[in-house]
Design a protein around this nucleic acid. Structure first.
Ligand SMILES: [Mn+2]
Ligand SMILES: [Mn+2]
Ligand SMILES: [Mn+2]
Ligand SMILES: [Mn+2]
Lengths: 220, 220
DNA sequence: ATATATTTTTAGGTTAGTCTAAATTTTTTA
DNA sequence: TAAAAAATTTAGACTAACCTAAAAATATAT
């Protein structure tokens, strides 16, 4: 049988909260992420367990089964491909596409996804630098650094963001920090861990720890 | 407030069954079109009436209000634009797109529709020859002829279809009858009203009354 | 180790959209 | 124009996804 919009969202969120080592996700964490109450989460967990999509023992938290993982990854693939479409083809900003993709990701049709993928040229990353699972369901998270782990004097490439909030992305736009930008760390302030960074060999600017913590980068 | 997926479908179907002269639509006709029971339709009609989207008096059938008409036309605009996208950009056949568009038409976001429209070059017709309402909600049905109204000897242009069933569209594909094709009526058989027609000055073929009744054409 | 706090589940309800069966209204037929 | 047939509405129920309040299980702190 088909999974509902709501079920797909639960699976996607369990995948995200479970992390790459597949740690148990708590009822309260899910209530928070789904903007529902813990009691509602418990109801849904029983249902997902009955469908064989999650491992669930009362009071012990949940993890995805193989089949639940498959569904979650398909939804993530669709979400990220639609985001590429919205930015590359329709001209949306990277700060505007998440909510729309949140709807498009639930449109069913295998062939639609595959034709969209081909139309976009089989992109490997979405507009936020997140990897796009392939048609077989393989999702490989690249191991990026967080900018806070970079030492003074190092030059790194901007590869992605941890915070996807429009306000954060707009802040990066205003600072000229885009995917692929070269970031050289010039100075780190002992007191508040704020930093001076030079973008693409051009302007130098100050960024707060809050910003550094949300930037994914890579040594060249 | 927002209209649900289901409410949007009811409005769209009332629009279609009501025709251009806005005739009353019966409960049974809606039950048929929505694949539900008459009792379920009655419930929904009460709700749509409460929201001011339809004119409804018990036992008298329904018509759309101005505001219901607006919603219906927006949904139709989205449906047809997405069909253009699927055919023109993703390479689907005109027989494959209806069901997918049926889902995409309910994705909310005004700006998405307008950016999609611009991306497609503001098309005026969908892949089946149906007119696409403009951003302001103007929908002008061109007054095409049905092929059965064309006399022997006349040459007409193929402009659209009345039946959107995949099997009918595939039949047209196999016959070489596509949008824009020139159709010359060579002969009409008295007995069963089947006809011989020449397509684009090339091959001549026989078509049944069933086919003729579903072809929209225009004198040149 | 017990008391307290936190987390999770259970119990009992609500709303949207559907259903069947029965009642009512309208239409058709004799 | 009265009886029969057809269409429509009402009554009462069901499921999915949510809720609040209360009970039970687990974790934390004295
Ligand atoms: Mn997103
Ligand atoms: Mn993304
Ligand atoms: Mn269609
Ligand atoms: Mn169409």
């Amino acid at each position: 049988m088909q999974n509902s919009f709501t079920e797909e969202n639960y699976l996607k969120i369990i995948h995200a909260l479970s992390g790459r080592d597949g740690v148990e996700v708590s009822t309260n964490a899910l209530a928070e992420s789904t903007s529902t109450r813990a009691a509602s989460v418990t109801d849904m967990l029983r249902k997902l367990a009955d469908k064989g999509l999650i491992h669930y023992k009362k009071y012990q938290g949940v993890t995805l089964t193989e089949s639940g993982e498959k569904v979650a990854i398909k939804v993530i693939r669709k979400h990220r491909l639609w985001e590429v479409f919205l930015v590359e083809k329709l001209g949306f900003g990277w700060d505007e596409v998440h909510d729309i993709a949140e709807e498009l990701e639930h449109v069913p049709s295998e062939v639609l996804v595959e034709k969209l993928d081909a139309f976009l040229g089989h992109p490997k990353f979405d507009p936020h630098g997140d990897p796009i699972p392939d048609a077989k369901g393989n999702l490989t998270e690249p191991d990026y650094l967080i900018l806070t782990d970079v030492h003074v004097g190092e030059k790194v490439l901007m590869m992605g963001v941890l915070d996807h909030a429009p306000s954060f992305l707009q802040h990066l736009d205003r600072s000229g920090i885009t995917l692929g930008a070269v970031i050289e760390v010039k100075e780190i302030n002992e007191y508040d861990k704020s930093a001076s960074v030079q973008i693409n060999g051009g302007p130098t600017l100050f960024i707060s720890l809050e910003v550094s913590k949300n930037l994914l980068v890579q040594r060249r």
